[in-house]
Design a protein around this nucleic acid. Structure first.
Lengths: 337, 337
DNA sequence: TTGTACGCGTTATCAC
DNA sequence: GTGATAACGCGTACAA
């Protein structure tokens, strides 16, 4: 009922027991007589007592918080990831401390150390948050103290658990699928050379190679991550008379722009985006997209993290891999006017 | 250089000073001789000392963390909000503890108390996270202990600071603007009766009333928050021969679906979405949208929060209001085939 | 089953 | 300018 920071001592005094007993009923590990347990429990409810988390943290060296690092929540993909992680960890009674680094400048180690210095219980990174040597070193150092777990990035560092989607393989298969539709001149628009970006490109080249198709550098373009970037790139191809019979992009947003530009120029080719986000369904025609299994990645991350933090050292896989899948929509079929 | 939780005592010992001196150097408030300051600072760097945040928290009753509550990050609007808040608070050296409640069930008070029990320094809510009596009571209770600040929701409770966009007025003006374009049969699709939703509806009615237009209930439809919901609603209007000459929606995603359905049925009417999100630019034609000034709202929230937490009690406005603005795009002009 | 006393690492308040 | 030392609130050996 009352307020003003009631402590375990207040409860103890009111119940005529020691703080040890109160602590015992709270943490329920040791035996307490049913009678005193009831008394204490009632007093706790009466006085509105809640344990001070700092004092608790000081003793246990844990406040049941895991840090989540990503570049930006403005990207729907990362936002969804954080949302899934937050929800999952919460079900295991962990809170989330969020840290968005902004564009990966190569000087993001302060974000790591910031969280580590706050003594979070674990760290989950989403996407390519770190790429420079010192940043990765900082992450490795963090892994020496607490569980560190990365989603969609593979640092190959000791102690860092990685959970990835095999996007290279997804791209390779996509290239083969397109080839069966007689598409051999695939335009590929990508935004930036992240871990994920590198692998997509690698998969593309692998696929082309297997099919005996010579890579045309003009078809592979790095563009800025917005509609205009993709539009310009496609218009550029058209104006330069570079032939293309399919478009693949590293992000759905680029597919939206690319498809728009292609249609405006009378090019009715399949367009395939990436991430299978809401944008893919918002475009007209609706866009096919590669689903990189974010839900599975996050669920796996949550499970691994909780196991690592559970104390009981059940074995946790150092690397977990999922397969990308193609989600076909209207934009997949070759269109005629 | 070394590791294993070096404490202030270790630094003190190494420097042959007391922990008080080390503390003083760290917090830089009291005077310390330049000589010992250097020695201590060097030792701190050498031994890689960082203050234990729990012990610090115990003493100061603060870990410089503010809690952020929203329903879901899957909504791009909320994701952007959280991102902006996170960035802003970080610049003031505050971390963010994130808590997503999921759909507003009216039983979300545990999310408030969870954060309060972790002794966060302040609370920011985004959108209509709480609506039931007990939930609002819990929030009010929280406001008795720490600064509580709401974005786009107005609880009218003592101690709760609200920062809102006047969406009712934005809608009212939009109705007038449409009327000038000779649109008098405005279809309005909305998803749910949040604070924001109520005010949009209210603005719509106000505008119609001022223009002497009788409200047609068939034109105002509650739909589920996805493309299909909006599409069905428009198709329904078409099949029932309900005349409409403009479409306004409570969310951009609904505008995307509505526009698509309208175009497929040969109805070339202005479509105006809400939130001015990326979806508005992804649609074809691009959608006009009401910008509810999220950036300003969040910036204001950050500023108010930091002022409230700064200790110096500068006056902070209990209510801050911004005006919505119409962003016109292709979908605004009435189209002909 | 219960109570005592100490440790956790800081900050803050005194003295000197 | 600097050094003891008392909070801060909790968990938990150890003792009873």
């Amino acid at each position: 009922m009352s307020d003003m920071n009631v402590t375990i001592y207040d409860i103890a005094k009111k119940c005529h027991v020691s703080i040890a007993t109160v602590s015992r009923v709270l943490n329920g590990n040791s035996r307490v007589s049913e009678k005193t347990r009831r008394i204490v429990l009632d007093a706790i409810k009466d006085m509105g007592y809640t344990p001070n988390p700092f004092a608790r943290g000081l003793g246990l060296d844990s406040m049941k918080i895991v840090g989540v690092l990503c570049t930006s929540l403005t990207d729907a993909f990362f936002a969804r990831a954080v949302s899934l992680i937050e929800d999952g960890m919460r079900q295991h009674h962990f809170d989330i401390m969020l840290s968005c680094t902004g564009p990966n400048t190569g000087h993001n180690s302060p974000y790591i150390t910031g969280l580590v210095n706050k003594h979070v219980d674990g760290l989950i990174t989403v996407g390519t948050v770190f790429s420079s040597e010192p940043d990765i070193a900082a992450l490795t150092a963090a892994a020496g103290k607490i569980p560190v777990l990365t989603i969609n990035c593979d640092y190959h560092q000791p102690g860092i658990y990685s959970i990835v989607c095999n996007e290279a393989e997804g791209m390779r298969r996509l290239v083969h699928t397109l080839a069966r539709q007689h598409c051999r001149h695939i335009a590929y628009l990508y935004d930036v050379r992240t871990y994920s970006g590198r692998h997509k490109l690698q998969g593309l080249r692998q696929g082309l190679k297997e099919l005996g198709i010579k890579e045309n550098p003009a078809l592979i373009q790095q563009v800025s991550l917005n509609l205009e970037g993709a539009e310009k790139a496609i218009e550029n191809l058209v104006s330069r008379n570079v032939p293309f019979d399919a478009i693949v992009t590293s992000e759905d947003i680029l597919a939206v722009g690319a498809q728009r530009a292609a249609l405006e120029n009378g090019r009715y080719v399949p367009v395939i985006g990436w991430n299978n986000s809401i944008l893919a369904t918002c475009a007209t025609p609706t866009l096919s997209s590669i689903d990189n299994r974010l839900d599975s990645l996050c669920a796996s991350a949550v499970q691994s993290m909780t196991q690592l933090l559970s104390g009981q050292d059940q074995p946790v896989p150092v690397r977990t891999e999922f397969s990308a899948i193609l989600v076909e929509r209207e934009s997949f079929q070759t269109k005629k006017e």
